[in-house]
Design a protein around this nucleic acid. Structure first.
Length: 292
DNA sequence: CCAACCCCCTGAACGC
DNA sequence: TGCGTTCAGGGGGTTG
């Protein structure tokens, strides 16, 4: 399901709620979801560790522990994270459950003689298609497993420049659309946002990357961060709404201009939007605004 | 290096 | 109604 804007949204919803919490217990129902190390080592190493903060790199999420150990996860197509009260019924296809407790808060409440803190929380990973993966990388150990080390530049940094794009892609015979999906060049762009970016840039998705001119590389370098941050903004959701919709419905598809709109009028020129398959991926574009 | 296939898995939508 | 096919926003691998 998620591309960079969705992963960032999940991070922004979950991170403030789990900071400082203690992992009381980890349950892995589908061992294959833990890519490294073995599931039992994954569980035992994480037990009693304190969550420091979260990070995002491309479409990866990283839960950093106070020990320096890192939980890395990739949601792939249908993975989702939900922070819920332990008593809430579980989502279907829940494969990993982290039971969390707020040690500090409970200690303070006890000192103040306040009512006992309510039941513990769980961070649950559900994934219908089971493509999502977890890695646990101990502090000081090199992560040669998850693939994060192969990622290209982050789209929201000044590293996305016309010069960078031209250097990395200027000689590729592949289509520009396939190049945008290459996580080793710019990290985090998936099928939806590559279509949206190319529409905004006015570049046909099937153009060979090598055919783009200097002005078009400039346009792309500007449009990539602009579109990505725009969609992060439109995906904004409160923690309450996120939980209520089970972490599923936060994506603001109404803001998409071309993806999913083949056959509808182009928002710029009203010409009918076309669909074509590029590198096995469905692609939507405007035949007038995006000339081949 | 590349293209062209294969795999992973479930469920929704569609055609007959 | 049922059954088969195709497709879905993510990756990785092998072969020639």
């Amino acid at each position: 399901m998620p591309e960079l804007p969705e992963v960032e949204t999940i991070k922004r919803v979950i991170e403030p709620q789990i900071k400082g919490l203690v992992i009381e217990k980890v349950t892995v129902r589908r061992p294959e979801v833990v890519a490294h190390p073995a599931a039992d080592a994954f569980c035992s190493t994480l037990t009693n560790q304190v969550i420091s903060h979260m990070e995002r790199r491309g479409k990866f999420l990283i839960i950093v522990l106070e020990s320096g150990d890192c939980i890395i996860l990739h949601l792939r197509m249908t993975g989702g994270l939900l922070l819920t009260p332990t008593d809430d019924p579980e989502e279907k296809h829940t494969h990993i459950v982290f039971r969390l407790k707020n040690q500090a808060k409970q200690a303070i409440l006890q000192k103040q003689d306040a009512p006992v803190a309510k039941g513990s929380l769980e961070l649950r990973f559900s994934d219908m298609r089971r493509f999502g993966r977890f890695w646990l990388i101990p502090k000081d150990e090199t992560d040669a497993y998850s693939g994060i080390h192969k990622l290209g530049v982050e789209p929201l940094t000044e590293l996305v420049t016309a010069e960078y794009l031209h250097t990395r892609l200027g000689k590729r015979k592949k289509t520009i659309k396939e190049c945008l999906l290459d996580q080793g060049v710019v990290a985090g762009i998936g099928n939806i946002y590559s279509d949206e970016i190319l529409f905004t840039a006015g570049i046909h998705p099937a153009r060979p990357a090598a055919s783009l001119n200097a002005k078009e590389w400039e346009t792309l370098a500007a449009v990539i961060p602009e579109r990505i941050s725009y969609f992060i903004e439109t995906n904004k959701i409160s923690a309450e709404d996120y939980l209520q919709t089970k972490g599923r419905d936060y994506r603001n598809t109404p803001f998409l201009q071309v993806y999913g709109h083949a056959g509808s009028p182009c928002p710029k020129c009203s010409q009918t939007l076309c669909r074509m398959v590029i590198g096995t991926r469905s692609s939507v574009y405007c035949p007038v605004c995006q000339k081949i």
